[in-house]
């Protein structure tokens, strides 16, 4: 099995997929770092070098003004209200929600990437892991060797897990290293508040606790890794089912983008919470965002994703082992 995995890793490395993904991540991190840097500069220009408390206070007032203005939907209004309550909590506890530094950047970047950007990157690696063998015809050699089919697919899946893990690690490391050039590398121990519970329009702060940022990052990246693994597994299944790599990518892309769009508009369609793409925003539970559909919890999303992943894996193996190769 180790030899088979070595073969698959060789192919992934030689196709330079991980390198491409690393490149894209590096470019995007640089882009966001720069834009955030500009944002900070602008704020300095406007308000001068003020305390973060003043800025946060100002933000709360701004948001309150927006709520009172007319022409705002009820949904949006309640979300803004939640945000105010959260910011107020940070203020009351004297914790800066945006402690400057590379760890904070990595945390926020991961939070925003978990439901679309990172899955896309995973897709780049996973989409052709099986289908490329079929379209190139090499599957005929692969499957006529004295190795059982399930072992071959298993070696591919293990390779996928390794690649997904590599990408998640690269994602963290690159965003830390690159953003640190500008924001500095400090802030590992800065306190972060987690454990908000959203109940209706109310923010429940009973379970809230303050943890150091490194611990938060660890939790966050575990969730990111889990999402990446599930997205990778589903893409893997599509790669087995659909011979044509671009077609498989298209299906996955459609699913991911529809997830990103649906999350904002399905609050009244309750069954949608069983779709995997609605459940990708796991980090939202940590930071206390309102879930797309009321009543969704971290545990629920984890179970939904795990079920999807498991089903995808079963389908992949069942199909691959029986399939006639023409």
């Amino acid at each position: 099995m180790i030899n088979l995995v070595r073969n698959e890793m060789l192919k992934i490395v030689r196709k330079k997929r991980i390198l491409i993904v690393a490149g894209i991540i590096a470019v995007l991190v640089a882009l966001f770092t720069y834009s955030q840097y500009r944002e900070i500069e602008r704020r300095l220009e406007r308000f001068g070098d003020v305390d973060w408390r003043t800025t946060l206070q100002q933000q709360i007032i701004d948001t309150q003004n927006r709520i009172t203005s007319s022409g705002i939907s009820d949904e949006w209004k309640s979300e803004l209200q939640l945000r105010i309550q959260q910011q107020q909590y940070y203020l009351d506890n004297n914790v800066n929600p945006m402690e400057p530094g590379a760890p904070s950047f990595a945390r926020v970047f991961a939070e925003h990437s978990i439901n679309l950007f990172l899955p896309l990157m995973i897709m780049v690696v996973a989409a052709d892991i099986v289908s490329s063998e079929r379209s190139a015809g090499t599957v005929k050699l692969l499957l006529t060797r004295p190795v059982k089919r399930w072992r071959i697919l298993m070696s591919k899946y293990i390779t996928l897990i390794l690649s997904v893990s590599t990408i998640v690690v690269l994602f963290g490391v690159l965003s830390y290293l690159i953003s640190g050039l500008i924001f500095g590398y400090q802030g590992w121990a800065a306190p972060v508040i987690t454990g908000f519970n959203v109940e209706g329009n109310e923010l429940n702060t009973n379970a809230v606790q303050m943890i150091p940022q490194w611990q938060y990052l660890l939790m966050e990246f575990s969730l990111v890794w889990f999402v990446a693994l599930i997205v990778g597994t589903i893409t893997f299944m599509l790669s087995v089912l659909i011979r044509n790599t671009p077609a498989g990518m298209g299906v996955m892309l459609a699913a991911l983008i529809s997830g990103a769009i649906l999350s904002n508009m399905v609050s009244s369609w309750e069954q949608a919470k069983y779709l995997f793409m609605i459940n990708l925003n796991l980090t939202g539970y940590l930071s206390g965002q309102a879930p797309p559909i009321e009543g969704m919890t971290l545990g629920f999303s984890l179970v939904v994703l795990a079920v999807w992943g498991l089903a995808a894996l079963i389908v992949s193996f069942a199909v691959f082992i029986r399939q006639d190769i023409y």
Binding site: N3, L10, R14, K15, A136, G137, T138, L141, P146, V147
Partner: peptide, 29 residues
Amino acid sequence: MAQMGCIVENPELYSYLTGWENLEHFARM
């Protein structure tokens, strides 16, 4: 399968690897 070697239709090997790497790849199986 251990008794058999084959080429089905075209000899489709991994074009992004060298000939030797291709052989190593299949030798590992």
